[in-house]
C-alpha cells in the first residue's frame, strides 16, 4: 500500500514540475492557431517541385522518385519535351506529376533519389481537409508549394538540407573519399587487392563517419 502511494506521489511530482516549468518558461505547449512553432530547417513535410532560373521545370520525368517511394505515393507520366515551347531542359518532361499526401510517409527518399534536385520538402504541414481530392496534389499545387515556401528564386537541396548555388554539381566530401578509395583500387589492381575490399575499407575508415557527421551538420 505504501509502495503504491509512493509511486503515485512520484508521478504527481513530475506532472507538477512540468506544470510549473511551463508556467515559467512556456516550453511545451504552444497556443497553436495563434502561435506556430518554428520548425527546424530539415523538417520534412509536403513536397514541392523546383524550377530553373528561367522558370522551366527542373524535373525530367525519370521516375526514380516514384521507383524508390516505399508507399507508392508518387505517380508520373512522362512525355516528349516540345522543342518550340520547352517545359524543361531535358528531352523528356513529366506530363503528369501526382503526389498523394494520404500515402506519403515523409521519409524523404524521393528527395535523395532525384538526380536533378527537383524535389524539396517544405515546412508546409497544415494540409488538413475534409475532401480526399485536396490531399492529392498535382503539378500546379506542388509548384505553388515551392512559391509559398521558398519564393520565386530557384532553391537547391540535397539530402534534406539546402546548398548554395556555387556548390551545385561539385562532389561533396563524402564522394571525394569514395573516389580516393577508387583510385587506390586502380593503383593496387592485380596485386592481390580484392574487388570488394574497397567497400569494407570504406566502412572501416573512421574518417568517413566523421565527414558524414560533418555533412549532416552535427
Amino acid at each position: 500500500m505504501l509502495e503504491g502511494l509512493k509511486a503515485m506521489l512520484q508521478g504527481l511530482i513530475i506532472t507538477f514540475k512540468h506544470f510549473l516549468l511551463n508556467i515559467a518558461t512556456n516550453r511545451f505547449t504552444v497556443q497553436y492557431p495563434k502561435k506556430r512553432r518554428k520548425l527546424p530547417d530539415r523538417a520534412r513535410w509536403a513536397l514541392s517541385l523546383q524550377w530553373h532560373e528561367d522558370l522551366t521545370e527542373r524535373c525530367v520525368g525519370c521516375q526514380l522518385c516514384a521507383a524508390i517511394c516505399p508507399s507508392e505515393a508518387i505517380y508520373i507520366e512522362g512525355a516528349v519535351n516540345p522543342l518550340d515551347s520547352p517545359v524543361g531542359k531535358g528531352e523528356r518532361y513529366a506530363m503528369t506529376w501526382i503526389w498523394d499526401a494520404t500515402r506519403c510517409l515523409y521519409c524523404g527518399f524521393c528527395v535523395e533519389a532525384c538526380p536533378e534536385e527537383a524535389i524539396v520538402m517544405t515546412k508546409i504541414y497544415e494540409m488538413a481537409t475534409d475532401r480526399r481530392e485536396d490531399l492529392i496534389w498535382h503539378k500546379e499545387r506542388l509548384y505553388e508549394a515551392k512559391k509559398q515556401q521558398f519564393g520565386e528564386k530557384p532553391t537547391f537541396a540535397w539530402m534534406g538540407f539546402y546548398r548554395k548555388r556555387e556548390e551545385m554539381g561539385k562532389p561533396i566530401e563524402l564522394a571525394r573519399i569514395w573516389h580516393e578509395q577508387e583510385e587506390k583500387y586502380y593503383k593496387n589492381r592485380g596485386k592481390g587487392f580484392d574487388m570488394h575490399d574497397r567497400y569494407k575499407r570504406f566502412l572501416l575508415d573512421e574518417r568517413n563517419i566523421e565527414v558524414y557527421k560533418e555533412d549532416l551538420g552535427e
Partner: peptide
C-alpha cells in the same frame, strides 16, 4: 512508348 513510363512500372 517514348518517355511515357519506365520498365519497372
Amino acid at each position: 512508348y517514348k518517355f511515357f513510363t519506365r520498365p519497372w512500372e
